[in-house]
Design a protein around this nucleic acid. Structure first.
Lengths: 350, 350
DNA sequence: TATTAGCACTCATTCATTAGGAGTGCTAAC
DNA sequence: GTTAGCACTCCTAATGAATGAGTGCTAATA
């Protein structure tokens, strides 16, 4: 459909605009060595590209700026595979060097390195933890009538919640309760726990232990909002580095939108590979001026989390995609090492 | 030293500037009903106040702006006691209505309500937890050679750390270890734990348990950075609402300074009552354009935390001081209820 | 004597005007 | 098919005048 020359010009225009954030003129383009054409020729081609909807003008006599369609085409067809600079590579890998055993830490670190390397905002969705299984319950009495309920999952996460058993808890009550809980619920996936607590087990518990209700409620409390996916933001302030956000008002709008929590579907990626949503392709209206690039990473065999990078539409797609590719890969394998077994990185199966 | 009229004019000038963020002129001031003087008279007084160093001009023919000395005098002598609006009062109190049992949650909520009510940035220093005592250790084995070490303090905090005992841990080893730890260390203040682990107990442990070293290290790891005071920030973005920060660059500088962590001495207040540090009175150079107001709150009988509010020098000192007074009081008593006993808010001693 | 009116002056801000530069579209020549 | 040339548009930065809020100072007033 497009001639080679048009492709070239479109590509260079987008590249240039991504780099400079300034409308690209024909004269400017003609100076590049890849372009052996005169400004006039380029003008003609640009006019055609504008008619086709790939480019736009900010005003009658301005240079050209990519339209959303232009970006889309660029992302789909014109992206040149990028190589990372050595230092980027080193930095990216550095987080997987140290022996980190908590998935959450690894994920946090990934988010922060990404936002650092891209100068955009990163959102990392932690994996769905509802499939994690309960490994141990315990209850530790504190002073007075208070006690703290603790739940450990097989992934090594520890949730806890302080509660107050107004009617008092005897040591034997606690022991009974803890034993019952461990007997009945260890090995159960988190997603099942609320149901189990509410129905089957409930009566059993209440028959044996005086204050079972309070304890159960408190265990449920400690799980609220914790079994669902978690979002880690990083580099929210990076948006201030982008020239299009030189206005405090815009920055504020963005930060407020982010802080008030976006629906996580925006950042989720259940598909294989990398997804790019440009401007209005994002469902959320507040992200109309942004592009979001997402990819999935694997946690163990069947769970996935998502990484999302939010930047202006004039985002460095090539670089971000390369970075995401590498990082999701690295993160996946780091997490695999973590969840399968601690052994693999030191010794063989024996 | 200053005449009554000078006091009045200084006060009104500061008030006005705090409200409007604009230099205050003589004509403008003379319009207020509290002022029965002509602009000319006010000009004369202002000229004197300027000579005395309380006011400044931004340029030769501009209105007056308070100097740091002016703010200082205002804070020390001219502050009129403020009454809170009913709604502010309600909002402020609301966080202590719900039954919250975790000190940390209470503290976080306090920080966020303060930043909401003031439109400034709040820093809340959690109490020194080194005096908290260990209530329970436990170790939960996960898959492979990994396990998670858990430590519960008498305040109900739960710290945990995943570790990898490369040489394997038998169930009996773990049990032995946990028993030893609990026997020897329960009741010990956190500040003592590292020493205990490193010296006295260490040999004992190592004699009885194969892999004691790994476990000990991991317990120490789980305490790193957790026994010291913690800072809770809230409302960092509020600074963008202040007209003096209409420039992205300034906002960025501020946010970066905050994020990169200020020495907490800046926000700490070990004295009784409220402290105000204006502009260059802050040790840290980056806070030269800000004022910081701090107060202490009590946690139980002998521990304290600090609340700090950071705003522009042109901060509403009266309001902030009032709010801080009330909140530190409320927070203190809420925490007292928490740490002494769970009973007090439901029933009498019996 | 303390206050105020009056006046000349300063400076920031606003607005219109201008000149320059970068861009465009179109046409005619190559 | 390509390009040089030209008239035209529009943004931007610079200039200067008008406006207004402010000042300091002096002389008149209460």
């Amino acid at each position: 459909m497009l001639t080679n020359r048009q492709l070239l010009i479109l590509q260079l225009t987008v590249n240039d605009f991504i780099e400079s954030a300034q409308p690209v003129g024909s004269r400017q383009l003609s100076k590049k060595e890849e372009v052996p054409f005169s400004p006039a020729t380029i003008r003609n081609e640009m006019a055609d590209l504008e008619e086709l909807g790939y480019l736009e003008k900010t005003h009658t006599s301005s240079g050209r700026v990519p339209s959303e369609k232009g970006y889309r085409f660029y992302v789909d067809h014109l992206l040149t595979p990028q190589k990372l600079k050595m230092e980027d590579n080193l930095q990216l890998r550095s987080i997987f060097q140290e022996r980190v055993l908590e998935a959450e830490v690894l994920i946090r670190n990934s988010a922060s390195i990404l936002s650092e390397l891209t100068n955009y905002t990163t959102v990392l969705l932690g994996p769905d933890t509802t499939a994690h299984k309960v490994k141990r319950f315990s209850i530790v009495p504190l002073s007075g009538t208070k006690a703290v309920a603790i739940m450990v999952t097989d992934s090594g996460r520890v949730e806890n919640h302080v509660f107050d058993a107004a009617d008092g808890l005897s040591a034997t009550d606690i022991e009974k309760m803890v034993n019952l809980l461990n007997e009945r619920l260890v090995g159960t996936p988190l997603s099942e726990i609320p149901r189990m607590l509410a129905t089957e087990s409930k009566m059993l518990f209440e028959r044996h232990v005086k204050n079972a209700g309070t304890i159960l409620t408190s265990i449920q409390d400690s799980m609220i909002g914790k079994t669902e996916e978690r979002m880690f933001y990083s580099g929210q302030m990076n948006m201030m580095k982008q020239p299009e956000f030189n206005d405090v008002q815009k920055v504020k709008t963005f930060l407020e939108a982010i802080e008030h929590g976006m629906p996580l579907t925006l950042f989720k990626n259940d598909l294989a590979g990398i997804q790019v949503r440009i401007g209005s392709e994002n469902k959320e209206q507040t992200l109309g001026d942004f592009s979001v690039i997402t990819t999935a990473y694997a946690v163990g065999t069947d769970m996935t989390g998502s990484i999302a990078i939010i930047g202006p539409k004039r985002m460095d797609y090539g670089r971000v995609i390369t970075l995401l590719d590498i990082l999701s890969e690295d993160l996946s394998s780091a997490l695999a090492r973590l969840t399968i077994d601690g052994r693999t990185d030191r010794r063989n199966e024996s």
